[in-house]
Each structure stands twice: as C-alpha cells, then as structure tokens.
Design a protein around this nucleic acid. Sequence first.
DNA 1: GCTACACCTGC
DNA 2: CAGGTGTAG
Length: 304
Amino acid sequence: MLPFAGGEPFSLDETFGCGQIFRWRRTLRGTWRGPYGAVALEVQAVPGGVAVTWRGAGSAPPAGDIWRFLGLDFPLGRAREILGADAPVSRAMDATPGLRILRQDPWDCVSAFVCAQWSSVAKIERSTGWMAREWGETVPFPDGEVIHLCPRAGRLAALAPDALRPAGLGYRCRYVVGTAHAVAAGDVDLDALRGAEYPDALAALLRLPGFGRKVADCVLLFALDQPCACPVDVWVRRAFHDWYAEELASRLPSEADALTPREHRALVQFAWDRWGDLAGYAQQYLFHARRGAKQHLAVPEPRS
DNA sequence: GCTACACCTGC
DNA sequence: CAGGTGTAG
C-alpha cells in the first residue's frame, strides 16, 4: 500500500480519466488497470493510500517509481493553497480536486502523443489501443482480462508506415515510425531527458517527426518531470481567453482565428509568469474545466 | 521571423 | 469541421 500525506487529495477516476493517459481503463470494481513500461499495473484506492499490484514478465517496478507514476510525490495540498488565490484555477480545482499529473513511462507517453496531432482523446485511444493489440506484449490478469503493453520502439521502428494504416493514423503513420526509429536508434535518449533543463529537453523532442510545441509539452509534463510545461491547444487557449481576457489584453494584439506560433508563445509565457512551476497543473485543471464547461454548459464567466 | 495551406479520419 | 505539424513562400 502506497500512502499519501494526510489530507492530500487523490482521485483515481479524475487522474486517469482526464485525458493525460490513453490506455488505462476502469474495472467494474472501481480499480484502474493499464500498461506501465514493461509491466501492467492495477491500482485501487484504499483508506489513506493506494494499493498497487503488478503483473508481467519483467521485474517488479520499484515502489518509488510507482509512487511517482501516480503523482503522489507532488504536494497537491500546498499547490492548492498557492493556486487558490487565482479564481479561475481555484474554481477548476474545486471541480476535480483529486486530479494529479502522472509521471508516465517516457516511451509509453511519446508513442501515444505522437498520434495526438489534430486528433481527439477518443481517436487517440483507438489508435494506440489498436497498435498495442497488434504489436504490444500481452499481460494476463487472473480474471482473464489481458493488458496489452505499449509496443516497444524497436518493434514500431521496423514497420513500414502503411502497416499502421488500419490504426486510423492517416498521415501520422510516418511520424509514429519515424519517432520510433529515432528512439530505437538512440538519436534521442528519453530517459536522459529526465532531469535535463526544460529548454534542452524541449529542443530534443522537437527534433522528432510529428513533434511540435504542443505535443512536446505534453510529454514534458506527463513523463519528463517538467512541471512548468504548459501544453497549449485550442481548449487551453479558449480557457485563457475566457477567464483571463483582461490580463491577456496587454500581451496579445487580439484573438485571431488561427493559433499562430506567436500567440502560442505568448500564452505559454503568460502561464509561466502567472503560475511558474505550477503552470502544468494550472493548465490541466483549466483544460479539464473548459472541456467540461462545453459539455455541461456550466462556464464560469463565459465570453461574449 | 511570419503567414498560408495540405493533411487522414471520424463524429 | 476538429484537442496540430511540416513545408513553402
């Protein structure tokens, strides 16, 4: 059992269901199962902590790794106090107070988000699930369910891009194979990027095909220990413009139709100036709230 | 540096 | 018509 600090909020449903990870599923018992590198995990909320079991052919993942995977090392209570001064973030955190940012296996995360451009959560889940069933190792659970691990980079690198076409990846097929090749060949050492300075890790990821600023920031935030990374997509952009219109007015000429690189950088800088190293968490809550607002029509202070 | 445009698929 | 990136001007 992995404990967390007294009173620290944590929700499996909010954490695994917010769109930061694509291959994990909730079981009928309310636990969550999914791949984590070379093993499959099942996590269950218990009083005061989380119970974790693992299965697979590999060795047992260190408890500290799982602790960090679940984001339990992050002082969310303290972050809540700091971000509580920011009204929109505070409201967003009230909606999903137990949402934590995971620390995913780097390749699991890269291989998922390279599929993410101009896509949706549902579509990424289909594509990555298809690839895993086709090329991922299988790990059975006693009740008969089989977890398919994320295919290793070397496996995907050996494929012809068209082999991925049934996954519905379209023009992203060559990005998946190209990125897998770069990782398998050692052109990019994902593990070494943990602990690198943010600009260096960002530059390394931007060399991968299919990786622009948004996808790179997702990987930096969700796997590579960069809490300041702030992925800006159209939903985050809408959230910023909806809830920080006055603050942005002095930084941006106006809200254009297209999200230009210039506006993109300005929005990231805005997040850094306002939230510093908590920008990633602030982004995730605002992102989730803005998407939920669309679904539930419960927007705090909608624009126009 | 910046803006414009093509690109696969699915809901 | 969409939760972006690569490429050409």
